Amino acid sequence: MFRWSIPALIVGLTTAFVTLRLRHSNNLPIQPEIQLSDVMPGSYGAVLTRADGSTLTLDSFAIETLASQQKSAAAAIGFNMITTPKGRRFDCRLPDGSHVWLNAQSSIRYPLTFNGKERKVEVTGGVYLEVVPDTAHPFFVTLPGKHTVATNGGSFNIYAYTDARASVLRITALDDAMHIRVKGREAPVTLYAGQEASLPPGKDMSIATADPEQALAWKRGIFYFKKTPLRRVMRQLARWYDVMVVYPKEVPDRVFTGTIDSNKRLEEALQVLAPLKLRFQFKGNRRLLEVYE
């Protein structure tokens, strides 16, 4: 009968353990550890998905490429989609000259050229539009939930994030009237300049006087909060700084009023929240930010 000696058995088990650990490590690469002070603010950029499915990373140097592509596609049929991931903002011109700004984690889908009597796009997230006036070719924006905004031209801001169950759809008209058609309703609602429409999930739409400074603060690089619940505050910071926010215990019952410069590092941004008396723990290998009372 073959027998293992004690030293040989120990060596064999140790070798097997090391081999398994190495295999496991190869399958799950270790992420570099970063500190909270290392988390920089987001930057300018987006991803273009072309009509043929190919993608292109967009930055300040790729604007001319995008513009030339749209000029050469004057008679083409198909759609582009521009998407900003977490930590990115972007702006571009549509084929009709309308100007679009995308906040972090947002998108716009538009045709290579506006043919026919209508100009149609689809958006998600935070989007500000300056639509070139054209009464002969109305501009339609399809939102998450298949709601629609229609206008002949003008400037308006859309808040249409779907990353939370209780996300409220908000549309702010700045300098012209528009019509909002809510899915499942026959008659559209008219929204006049200086008004804001809010549509909570499963509830009726309400219209109130808009606060343009708050609605457009993100476009100026400012987080603007007015008695904003903590969960919404942290959700906005998470999108811009590309972190995941978790609450190991319950979500602290806090509201915040104030502004934060989005050019600050995350550590500096959290210092502005000091009056809320919260504790933050950052796990850099997973970009995980834990929030405690």
Rank of each mutant, 00 (worst) to 15 (best):
K249A: 13
V189Q: 12
E33Y: 11
I260M: 09
A217V: 05
H179Y: 11
G87C: 05
K183R: 11
H24S: 15
D163Y: 04
P7L: 03
R119C: 05
H137R: 10
D176V: 00
S206N: 11
C92S: 11
E268Y: 08
G97T: 03
R235S: 10
L230D: 01
T57V: 12
R93S: 14
L112A: 04
A150N: 12
N80D: 15
K277G: 06
L143T: 00
S155A: 15
L20M: 14
A46V: 09
N115V: 10
P229M: 03
V246H: 05
K249Y: 10
R279Q: 14
F17N: 06
D38V: 01
C92Y: 13
S25G: 13
T57K: 13
K183D: 12
N27F: 11
Q281L: 13
L266R: 02
T257R: 09
S98N: 04
S54E: 12
E130D: 14
L58D: 04
L129H: 09
I108V: 10
P29V: 01
A8I: 12
A46F: 09
L216E: 08
G184I: 00
L58E: 04
F90V: 03
T49I: 11
W218N: 00
L28T: 14
K120R: 15
M1A: 13
Q35M: 14
R89C: 10
G42P: 08
G126T: 13
V121W: 00
F139K: 00
L58R: 05
S5L: 07
G145T: 08
S5H: 07
G258E: 06
I180T: 03
F223D: 02
I158W: 00
L9N: 01
P32C: 03
V127N: 01
S37Q: 14
G154V: 02
E118L: 13
V131K: 00
R235F: 02
A16I: 15
E290M: 15
K146C: 08
Q214H: 06
L36C: 05
V246D: 07
V132Q: 12
I63M: 11
W4P: 06
R239I: 01
T190E: 15
A160I: 01
R89W: 12
K183G: 04
R165Y: 10
G87N: 03
A62C: 07
G154W: 01
T14N: 07
I10T: 08
G42A: 07
V11D: 10
K86F: 14
P29M: 01
R50H: 13
S54C: 08
T55W: 09
G87D: 04
S167Y: 01
K117M: 10
G125H: 02
S25R: 15
K146A: 14
M234K: 05
E196S: 12
L278R: 07
G78P: 08
T257A: 07
R109Q: 11
R286P: 10
L278H: 08
A274Y: 10
Y128R: 08
F282Y: 12
I63R: 11
S37K: 15
V182C: 03
T228L: 02
L169A: 01
V149S: 05
T65W: 04
W240R: 02
T83N: 11
R23V: 13
L102N: 00
T135M: 13
Y44P: 06
V47D: 06
V47W: 09
T19P: 05
K249E: 14
A136R: 12
T228H: 00
T113H: 12
